[in-house]
Write a protein that binds this DNA or RNA. Structure first.
Lengths: 237, 237
DNA sequence: AATCAGTATAACTGATCGGTTAAAACTTTC
DNA sequence: GAAAGTTTTAACCGATCAGTTATACTGATT
C-alpha cells in the first residue's frame, strides 16, 4: 500500500475522475437508449476512454447499469428525505414535496427516462437499496397527509395515489419535454393548450394536487400569468 | 380436406390469423423487453411460426414494432374518442374519460410498458397517425374542461396537466401492478398504504381529479354514475 | 535509471441476432 | 392429378457487440 498521502490522493482523484466520466456517459446513454439499446462502445466513446477501461474501473454492462441506477434513484430519495424533514404546515410540506421532486428531476434530466423504462420492465434491475429509499419517501408523504388530515385541512386520501399522481405527471411532463422539442407535430398538439413555462406548470400541478387533497380551490402562491404561449420553450430553466 | 364454398375467405382468414398471432406475440415481447431488448426469434417462437414467416407477413423488426405501436395507441385513441362523443354533464364526462382510459389499459396490459418506453425514448418511433389521435383526445378533454368552466362547475385548469396527470397516474399504477406481484420488497412498501382493490383505486383517482378540477370535495359515487353506458365498446380484445 | 503498481489501449474473439435464401409443403385452379 | 401459386421452413450469413487479452504507458519510489 502507498505511504505518501499526496500521491494516494492524486491517484484517487484521477481514478475518481475516470469513474465519474464513465458513469456520467453511461447515464446519458442508458437514458437515451435503455439497457439493451445502449452500446458499451458508445459509452466509452462519450467518456473519451477505451472500452476496456470501463471493465477495469466499473465492471460489465450490468454492473455499470446498476451503478447508474443507484446514483439516479439514490439521489432523489436522499434529497426528498432531507427536504421533508423541514417543518411547516402540511400544505407547505406537500408543496415542498412536489417542488423538490420536480427540481431533482430538472437537475437530473436522465432520471425520468431511466426510471420510466425501469418501471416499464417490471423493475427487475432495481438494486436492493432502492425499495428502502422509496419506502422512506412514501412513508414521509403518508405522514404529511395524515398530519393534514388530523388538523382537519386534508380529506382522507390514498398516499399511494397521490404519490403516483405527482411522480406520474412530473415524469411524463419531463420526459415529454424532449418530444416537444424534436417532434413538430406533437408540439403542435400540446400547444392547443395555452401552454405554460415549466415553472408555471409546476405551480399548476401543486395547485391541482393541493386542491384535490384539501377539497378546496387552491390559489397559486405566486400570481399566474396565463397568456404566455411559448413554443418549444419547455426545456428551459 | 373438405370443400368449402369460398376458399378465398379461408385463405384470407388463415393469413389474418397468422398476422394476428405474430402481432400478438410481438406486442407481448416488445412490452416485456422494449424494442432493442426484444428478439425476433423469441417473437417467432411465441407465435409458433418460423422466423421467416414474420418477414413474409409483416416485414422487418422496425415495421413489426410500428405495427404493434399503431394497434396499441390507435386502440385507445379510438375508444376514448367514441366514448367522449356521448353527452352528459362535464363531471360525468370527465369521470367517463378517466374510466375509459383505465379500462382500455386493463384490456391491453401491454399498453402501459410500451407507451412508457416510447415516451422515455423521445417518441422517435411513433407512426405519423398517432399525433393526430393524441390531438383528438386532448382536444376533447380540453372541450370538456372548457364546458365545465363555462357552466361554472370547473375552475380554470390546464388540460395538458390534467391529461398528463390522468395518464401518468394510471400508467404508473398499471405498470406498477406487475411489480407488486413479483417484487416482494416493493409490495411491502406499497402495503404501508392501506392498499385498495384496483376498482377502488380508479374511483379514488376519479375523485381526486374531480376534486382538483371543481375545487370542491368530491365524494365517490356509490350510486352508479351513468350506467346507461354500452359496455361492449370497452371490452373488445 | 531501474523497478513496479496502477492504468489505458488496440486488437481480437466468440456469441448473438437481424435478416436472407432456396427449397419443401401446402392450396387452389384447371 | 398436375401445374401454378402461396405459405412455411431449416439452414445459413454477415454484422454487431459484450467482454478479453496482451501490451504499452505513467509516474512515483528506490
Amino acid at each position: 500500500m502507498q505511504k505518501i498521502h499526496s500521491h494516494v490522493n492524486r491517484i484517487d482523484k484521477k481514478r475518481n475522475e475516470t469513474d465519474q466520466r464513465i458513469l456520467e456517459a453511461a447515464k446519458e446513454v442508458f437514458a437515451e437508449s435503455g439497457f439493451s439499446g445502449a452500446r458499451v462502445d458508445e459509452i466509452a466513446s462519450r467518456a473519451k476512454i477505451n472500452k476496456a477501461t470501463i471493465y477495469y474501473h466499473i465492471g460489465d454492462k450490468k454492473k455499470l447499469y446498476e451503478e447508474v441506477l443507484h446514483r439516479v434513484i439514490g439521489n432523489i430519495a436522499e434529497k426528498i428525505t432531507v427536504i421533508l424533514d423541514e417543518n411547516g404546515s402540511p400544505e407547505e410540506k406537500l408543496r415542498l414535496y412536489i417542488r423538490t421532486v420536480s427540481k431533482t428531476m430538472d437537475s437530473n434530466p436522465e432520471m425520468a427516462p431511466i426510471i420510466m423504462r425501469e418501471i416499464a420492465s417490471g423493475a427487475n434491475n432495481l438494486p436492493e437499496v432502492i425499495p428502502e429509499d422509496l419506502l422512506r419517501i412514501v412513508g414521509l408523504l403518508s405522514r404529511i397527509l395524515q398530519e393534514g388530515k388530523d388538523e382537519g385541512i386534508f380529506t382522507e386520501v390514498s398516499p399511494l395515489v397521490i404519490h403516483l399522481m405527482v411522480i406520474g405527471v412530473l415524469l411524463f411532463y419531463k420526459a415529454g419535454a424532449k418530444i416537444h422539442d424534436t417532434n413538430v407535430t406533437l408540439a403542435g398538439i400540446f400547444n392547443i393548450d395555452d401552454f405554460k413555462k415549466p415553472a408555471e406548470i409546476i405551480l399548476e400541478i401543486e395547485r391541482l394536487i393541493l386542491s384535490a387533497v384539501t377539497g378546496r380551490p387552491e390559489s397559486s402562491p405566486a400570481h399566474n400569468t396565463r397568456n404566455t404561449r411559448k413554443k418549444g420553450a419547455l426545456c428551459e430553466e
